[in-house]
Amino acid sequence: MRPAARRALFGAVLAFVYAPILVVVVYSFNDSRFALAWQGFTLRWYRSLLASAEFRTALENTLVISLSATLLATALGTLLAVGIHFLRFPGRRALQALLYLPVVMPDIVMAVGLLALYVATHLTLGRVSVILAHVSFQISFVALVVGGRLQGFPVSLVEAARDLGAGPLAVLRRIVLPVIRPGIAAGAVVAATLSVDDFLITYFTAGAGASTLPIRIYAMVKRGVTPDVNALATLLLVFTIGVSLLALRGVGRPNRTGETA
């Protein structure tokens, strides 16, 4: 491909991908409720957003839900990956295959299933039901990321630790977890962004009380295009891109022992 053609191609795709998003960001600073024309720079949409009780509740819900769900999913997913990697047991292959299902299952189907379960068991919809729902799709991602990190883990390290007198728990705590910590962190970040971003499953399982930021956005968008949606969208955008970039740097960076992560 000639450089000129390549530049034109990159430019066109870049415009297609980023222009719409840029419009949202730019209009979140436009000092007019309706006009498309630029009326001057303002932060008032952000101020009114931050002042709104609904936004604060949604933010609080999002933080509580994604933190709890991520902690739980990271613990469960890491243990799962470690068990699958180091132990041989009946059903291991099936379990490995099962891990991919929540990744490929359409959100709407998981949402319907979880709601059906909650209704059938009379579980009150709220933060708890959403946390459980998020964990159910996060576990897979954590286990797959951590499992990837374990691929290169030398079995001889485990054997060396046992040879030196470490029981299973000590091997896990002192050798395996510290060595794969970058992988656990990466898995946790993936899980957290999935939780913060999730709309559909939360929408089905949250009930009235536990609306999150994506649910706020959805409700506002359904009511029409307003500058505060732009502001909220911009905030969420900055947050997820920021966290993901940080995570990417963390994964690519050599850890303190000088070995590339």
């Binding site: 469960l76 997913g77 243990l79 799962l80 470690v82 068990g83 699958i84 132990l87 047991f89 379990l95 099962l98 299902l101 929540p102 299952m105 189907v109 998981m110 319907v112 299933g113 979880l114 059906a116 379960l117 059938a120 459980l132 729902a133 964990v135 159910s136 576990i139 286990a143 299973p168």
Partner: peptide, 25 residues
């Protein structure tokens, strides 16, 4: 016991909150 302690919790969770919901559907 090791298998139960590592794989058990997540497997149980996926059973209750992934497989059972789909079975209900």
């Amino acid at each position: 016991r090791l298998v139960a302690a590592t794989v058990g919790p997540a497997a149980l969770f996926l059973l209750v909150f992934f497989l059972v919901p789909f079975a209900v559907v």
